[in-house]
């Protein structure tokens, strides 16, 4: 019984992490139209940084090597992870956004991801090379006296609070002039520029913000799982987050969270319990091609996703406009776009 609970709790934790990641990617891709094909690299940066700022120095004789080796108390490693991921996101954006075509941006991010993988994998002094970091303790587990196998008791509440915070942030942006301008950049960069929007700066900020959220997701991952290594951030991982955003509904926070539930909670967690047959790559391979195919089909038959983007009729003016135009229907109604 308790084993089943633990499995379900783990699945829930992964869903929470993916919901956070989807909201971050949605800000970039869904809201602003920035194609970041190496989103998961920023999750990895967050995971590694949260790890090396909480692990302490590697035990003597273990052969492990990594930078920092600090033992900072919760929640500082999560903050450090967010800052580091945001910093590198900004750095990438500074170079990649200098060209207008979205192809170049996508190409640059993809290439940066491959190179980041190579560097982490080949530099043992950074994050212990291909073996990665392990033994990261769950925050507060000592104080609260929670055994490692039940660490979801701590991580689910932390994750839920962070998810709520990230959601609220994204929601505020949606309803603000900021969110409106970001969407204008997505729809026509030229027109946004022609009406005084500094599109480079707007995109740069959203790139940093999305990567900060990715870093938070990464920190949660490493604190929950306890380990992270380079094999955990191949290109396919980025595509999985994209699939959650595209299936759920780009531009809609509720949609992308539903997408995270669908992709992570049902497809990925579900496939873990399928029996392995033929070779051990077969089940994940079939799962990934199903995700790829689903994304292509949805892009063709329902590009707006499960829950389409809605634009506020009254927006922040809900119940506040003095003009009271006669054609105003119910004030809280939203329009499907």
């Amino acid at each position: 019984m308790s084993a089943v609970v633990a499995l379900l709790a783990a699945a829930l934790m992964y869903v929470i992490i993916y919901a956070i990641l989807s909201i971050g990617l949605n800000l970039q891709y869904g809201v602003t139209g920035v194609v970041n094909f190496t989103y998961y690299s920023f999750v990895a940066i967050g995971a590694f940084i949260a790890g090396v700022t909480s692990l302490g120095h590697p035990p003597a004789g273990s052969g492990e090597t990594y930078i920092l080796g600090w033992t900072l108390p919760f929640p500082i490693p999560i903050v450090a992870a967010a800052i580091a991921a945001g910093f590198f996101g900004g750095l990438l954006a500074l170079t990649a956004f200098r060209r207008l075509r979205s192809d170049y941006l996508a190409i640059t991010t993809l290439c940066a991801g491959t190179v980041a993988f190579d560097i982490v994998n080949n530099t043992t002094g950074l994050f212990n090379g291909p073996n990665g970091i392990y033994g990261v303790a769950t925050p507060l587990s000592g104080q609260l006296n929670v055994p490692p196998q039940n660490n979801f008791l701590i991580m689910i509440p932390i994750g839920a609070v962070l998810l709520a915070g990230v959601w609220w942030l994204a929601h505020c942006i949606d309803l603000s002039p900021y969110g409106r301008s970001l969407r204008a950049v997505r729809e026509s960069r030229d027109a946004a520029e022609a009406f005084g929007k500094d599109t480079f700066w707007l995109q740069l900020k959203v790139m940093v913000l999305g990567c900060v959220i990715a870093g938070i997701g990464g920190a949660l991952t490493v604190e929950f799982v306890g380990a992270f290594n380079p094999s955990a951030f191949e290109t396919v991982e980025t595509f999985v987050v994209f699939s959650a955003v595209i299936l759920g509904g780009p531009g809609n926070n509720l949609g992308v969270v539903l997408g995270a539930v669908l992709v992570q909670g049902i497809i990925i967690q579900g496939s873990l319990y399928l029996p392995a047959f033929a070779n051990q790559e077969l089940v994940p391979a079939i799962r990934n091609s199903v995700i790829g195919l689903l994304v292509i089909l949805v892009l063709y038959f329902r590009p707006q996703g499960l829950v389409p983007e809605t634009r506020p009729r009254i927006g922040l003016m809900r119940g506040r406009t003095g003009s009271g135009h006669s054609s105003t229907p119910s004030e809280s109604a939203e329009v499907e776009v």
Partner: peptide, 30 residues
């Protein structure tokens, strides 16, 4: 033919990449 923006076409080729890679892994292993 439908005039999808470049953004969408990029994601579609990314999806094709995932599918081809999965087919290779499924048939020949890692």
């Amino acid at each position: 033919l439908r005039g999808s923006p470049p953004l969408i076409l990029l994601i579609v080729t990314f999806g094709v990449s995932l599918i081809l890679n999965s087919i290779i892994l499924a048939i020949w292993g890692a």
